[in-house]
């Protein structure tokens, strides 16, 4: 049988509270502000240093959607185009049927609260035949309802639901647009920039989990 040799408990019990200085979870300034400042290099450009993108694909797209596409660019070797929101479903259809971009990799969004079109939808497409990956981006206004592409690409079903869940962008014509990761009764959209990480649906947390939320 095992026999205790030294009965010291592994830690001090509750009767000897630690002289813990501020608890470790105390609010602290964000790490970004506290980082030691390196000797200032020349300030980086505030916009993406993208270069124009020219290929047979861009020529075909220009011929088909003359003024609907506003930008063809390449950044770190990755090509993307910026299009008007209304034209995106037809561009994706065109790419799928005529150019072989038959695999929708991802649909996601980015929130820029200060821009006139605060949301940027990002579609990533891949073509097995061409072994090429492109991104399609478009701006979405608050309350605007971009068309769903779930009919052409069934995989967009869940991906668009996730964008709705996280950003509150509603897709027109989506078969089953409801929350996917967050609870159904949750209020607010977590990945919007105007919500901080602890500024969430306190009511839901208290009602359903019985705890005070926050870190």
């Amino acid at each position: 049988m095992s026999e205790e040799v030294k009965p010291t408990p592994p830690d001090a019990g509750p009767e000897t509270p630690k002289p813990a200085a501020p608890p470790a979870a105390a609010p602290k300034p964000p790490a970004a502000a506290a980082k030691p400042a390196a000797p200032k290099p020349p300030p980086p450009p505030a916009v993406m240093a993208a270069t124009p993108w020219e290929s047979d694909l861009t020529a075909a797209l220009k011929a088909e959607f003359a003024d609907q596409i506003t930008e063809f660019s390449t950044y770190v070797g990755q090509s993307f185009l910026v299009a008007r929101t209304a034209a995106v479903p037809s561009i994706i259809d065109f790419l799928k049927l005529e150019q072989g971009f038959d695999y929708l990799v991802d649909v996601t969004a980015v929130h820029y609260p200060k821009k006139p079109e605060p949301f940027e939808l990002v579609y990533i497409l891949y073509s097995f035949a061409r072994n090429e990956r492109i991104r399609i981006k478009c701006g979405v206004k608050e309350g605007e309802r971009p068309a769903s592409i779930a009919a052409a690409h069934p995989t967009a079903d869940w991906l668009e639901r996730e964008v709705f869940d996280m950003f509150g962008i509603e897709f027109e014509g989506h078969p089953n647009l409801k929350r996917i990761l967050m609870p159904d009764e949750w209020e607010g959209f977590p990945l919007r920039k105007d919500k901080s990480i602890i500024d969430m649906d306190q009511r839901w947390v208290q009602e359903n989990l019985g705890i005070e939320s926050g870190q």
Binding site: E4, V5, K6, T8, P9, A12, G13, K18, A20
Partner: peptide, 23 residues
């Protein structure tokens, strides 16, 4: 046994945890 016990102070960090030893 407690949540407070999980917050280690300087003394604890320097001495290290002392788990019960068994023969």
């Amino acid at each position: 046994y407690t949540r407070e016990g999980q917050i280690w102070d300087r003394q604890m960090l320097e001495e290290g945890p002392r788990p019960t030893q068994y023969k």
